[in-house]
Simulated assay, not measured.
Amino acid sequence: KLDMGNSGTSIRLISGVLAGQDFTVEMFGDDSLSKRPMDRVTIPLRQMGVEVSGQTERDLPPLTMHGSKSLKPIHYQLPVASAQVKSALIFAALQADGESVIIEKEKTRNHTEDMIVQFGGEINVNVKEIRIKGGQEFTGQDVVVPGDISSAAFWLVAGLIVPNANVVLENVGINETRTGILDVIEAMGGKMTISDVDDIAKSATITVETSELHGTEIGGEIIPRLIDELPIIALLATQASGTTIIRDAEELKVKETDRIQVVVDALNAMGADITPTDDGMIIKGKTPLHGAKINTFGDHRIGMMASIAALLVSEGDVELERAEAINTSYPSFFSDLEVLSHG
């Protein structure tokens, strides 16, 4: 039995690793993870010869999986833009007998592909088509891990919207498949500089300062490059003049929470003017924010978004329920927030 906690990335990627292993594993998680559909991974893995079962027709966790030492290669077109699913299938394909072809719906983050090359493997990527042969051998490497831009995003937004702020973030990952938030900041008129670029580690120093922002439209192929940053981008948009529209982001509904509804409810409770849509939200700014009681519903990014929003509150307090969810991705978040709060 493997406890995946709150991590959708873990359960999906490890499913791909275990696909080629001839033993049985049960993977389970917390209440939030138990509501996240895994059929997007289990359907193609079954086609490769994996025995896997979950709860309901959507294969909700816990998942019971028994892999195979004779995995069949797959030709599979992803119905959703998901780096987690893609990476799971890449890990399975590396253990299959023959060449697999994976076709993405939209380009998504490519850390797995980069890592395979770094470890001496071969993977052929042609726009959205990925070809990978099974049975490859790899060589151990020293790996420099840059800071996660999804975590840095909260400080980027804080530096842009808190009065008289100037924030310098070092060693931030700027892999081109992850930098959608930087494009949005530029489109909204944010004051931002990028320096000390390391082309090998794909990292840089990013500096932001308080800015006069304006609304923008976010949709289409940029969405996979900033899907995890959309909650904090929504907060950013509440402090921009005019209207910001987020569309093509249906994937938000099957994250740790329905992030469209939870983001809207949380920020509106603090005084924002946001309307949810089927695939995103419409945000009208600039709005002052006030204190409120916010429930994270076990979603780490909701908790961090509300904490950054609290920096703008001049009336009342922000009370955060289930704040421990933040530990999922950023255990030192509140100590870093203290540093920021005190200059």
Rank of each mutant, 00 (worst) to 15 (best):
K1E: 15
G5V: 07
I11Y: 09
S15K: 07
E26Q: 12
M27A: 11
D31N: 13
D39P: 07
D39C: 11
R40V: 06
G49I: 12
E51H: 13
S53Y: 04
G54S: 10
T56H: 07
L60T: 10
T64F: 08
G67D: 10
S68N: 12
L71P: 12
P73E: 11
H75M: 08
P79S: 01
F91C: 14
A93D: 05
A93Y: 05
V117F: 01
G120I: 02
V127C: 11
T139A: 10
G140E: 11
V143H: 11
P146A: 03
A152W: 00
F154H: 03
F154A: 00
L156G: 03
L160I: 01
L160N: 06
V162I: 15
V162K: 15
V162Y: 14
V167C: 01
R178H: 02
R178V: 00
G180H: 06
L182C: 01
G190Q: 10
K191W: 06
M192P: 08
T193Q: 13
I194D: 00
D198T: 02
I200V: 14
I200N: 10
S203I: 04
S203P: 07
I206Q: 04
I206S: 02
T210V: 06
S211V: 13
H214I: 12
I222G: 07
I222C: 10
P224L: 13
D228L: 08
D228Q: 06
E229I: 01
P231S: 06
P231M: 00
P231A: 03
L235N: 03
L236W: 04
I245H: 12
D248W: 09
L252C: 04
E256F: 10
I260E: 06
A266H: 13
A266R: 13
D273P: 10
T275G: 05
M281G: 03
I282C: 07
K284S: 14
T287K: 15
G291V: 09
I294P: 09
I294Y: 12
T296W: 14
G298W: 08
S307A: 15
L311H: 12
L320G: 11
R322M: 11
N327D: 15
N327I: 09
N327H: 15
T328V: 15
S329M: 04
Y330E: 03
F334T: 04
F334I: 01
S335M: 05
D336M: 06
L340Y: 14
